[in-house]
């Protein structure tokens, strides 16, 4: 086993913002942002190795030790509950996990509430905390369309600006939790490479605070 710190980044815009944050703390790596099909990148000098994975898979890579650390949205962490440490809030990709319904909809509690979502565990846990009986319709995307077509009564999804909801005649009825990108760490890696990981987490945290002050 080499001494590289293996870092799983979520593919997409959030991952690019996360990489920029890491690079600004001195953990840059050639080629990461190039438009290519390569997935693994190394910086021998810094002893870091980045790889791009699907955002929903970051937790699995970290839990099973393929990555020492990774960055995952809080939404995927709550939904998939990987057995990892969550040692930092990177304050990137901020949004809310919310329930939304067609404008004017009221839940009178008379029927089983039909809920469309990509997050069945979050939806089940939220409604069971209120004792509300629901029927979950698990979808992979375009959740907003479900109430419009009469497939469900409401949706549970992440909401960033609320524009998509508004344009589809939906509005937020309740906020379940705030979401942002989190730094997650494999439990064994934290033990054996704690110094390296805490140094990185400390630098990220200082940079995030500087950015917040600048704003």
């Amino acid at each position: 086993m080499d001494d590289y710190l293996n870092i799983a980044l979520p593919k997409g815009r959030l991952g690019e913002d996360v990489y920029s944050l890491f690079a600004s703390c001195g953990y840059e790596c050639d080629g990461v942002m190039d438009d290519s099909r390569r997935l693994v990148f190394e910086n021998p000098e810094r002893q870091v190795r980045y790889f791009w994975v699907k955002p929903w898979d970051v937790g699995v890579y970290v839990e099973r030790g393929a990555a020492d650390i990774g960055v995952a949205g809080k939404d995927t962490i709550i939904e998939t509950a990987p057995d990892v440490f969550e040692i930092g809030d990177l304050r990137l990709g901020r949004c809310r996990m919310a329930c939304a319904a067609p404008d004017g909809f009221t839940d009178d509690g008379g029927t089983v509430l039909r809920v469309a979502t990509k997050y069945p565990n979050i939806a089940r846990s939220y409604y069971s905390s209120m004792g509300r009986e629901i029927d979950i319709v698990k979808l992979s995307g375009s959740i907003e369309i479900a109430p419009l077509l009469g497939l469900t009564d409401v949706i549970v999804d992440i909401v960033e600006t609320g524009r998509t909801l508004r344009e589809n005649g939906l509005s937020v009825t309740d906020v379940i939790s705030d979401i942002s990108a989190r730094l997650i760490v494999n439990r064994a890696s934290y033990r054996f490479r704690g110094e390296q990981i805490r140094e990185l987490a400390g630098k990220l945290s200082s940079r995030i605070s500087e950015e917040a002050e600048r704003r």
Partner: peptide
């Protein structure tokens, strides 16, 4: 207990 190279306890 953890052993280096094994991802879980």
């Amino acid at each position: 207990g953890y052993v280096d190279g094994i991802p879980r306890r």
